[in-house]
Design a protein around this nucleic acid. Structure first.
Length: 201
DNA sequence: GACACGATCGGCT
DNA sequence: GCCGATCGTGTCG
């Protein structure tokens, strides 16, 4: 059920970004368990990707997490307000990562409603990277957490999509990445109502 | 030490 | 569709 460490060692981050669609992301905060099906991701291709925090081999206190062995979380604060959750992949010193952009609520829906102050019937509850992080209670304390531990982890529930059920398009909010801005490295489940920008392909 | 800006969201027009 | 919120980070001095 719980994805093993070996899953995250895969050096093909474009494959993993697509393979993570359908997997179930869990958090357990003081016994409050919440989980959702991953329906939208983006791949960040290490040191050669101008949109990545690790572009050019940049190595700072913040980005150090990206250089860890695959299988840990990379959480950072964006726009001073939102926490964004990434899955660090590949091997040590190869800073590939997958940003999770949307989930479909599955377990602990009442807890998510309390955290988001809105009914689970609203898709905005977990649509978009900042929103899903808040719904799952992910904050800075989750940075560099082991994804095979018991605070945050990902399970395989046997949900898988065929290639024709997945759409690929340019990543969101990376205009600064120049020629890398238009690479089709954002993946989402076609027709899923939790996808944050379903029209942009 | 100072400053410009972001892998966004939600409210208002 | 537009705009303000809000603060850690990185870069420069």
């Amino acid at each position: 059920m719980k994805l093993p460490l070996s899953y995250y060692s895969n050096q093909d981050v474009l494959f993993l970004a697509q393979d993570l669609l359908g997997k179930v992301l869990f958090t357990n905060i003081n016994g409050e368990i919440t989980a959702g099906i991953i329906v939208e991701t983006e791949a960040y291709f290490g040191i050669q990707d101008k949109a990545s925090h690790a572009y050019g081999g940049r190595r700072t206190h913040r980005t150090e997490t990206l250089y860890a062995h695959g299988g840990v979380s990379y959480v950072y604060l964006c726009y001073g307000i939102h926490h964004l959750f990434n899955v660090v992949t590949s091997v040590k010193d190869e800073p590939h990562a997958v940003l999770v952009r949307a989930i479909e609520p599955l377990i602990g829906k009442e807890i998510m409603e309390k955290r988001r102050q809105m009914p689970v019937s609203r898709t905005a509850i977990s649509s978009g990277p900042g929103s899903l992080a808040k719904a799952l209670g992910i904050n800075q304390a989750f940075n560099k957490k082991d994804l095979i531990g018991n605070e945050i982890w990902i399970e395989d529930h046997g949900i898988a999509y065929n290639p024709d059920e997945i759409a690929a398009g340019p990543r969101i909010g990376v205009a600064y990445a120049e020629e890398d801005a238009h690479l089709p490295w954002r993946f989402f489940v076609k027709g899923n109502k939790y996808v944050s920008k379903p029209n942009k392909v």
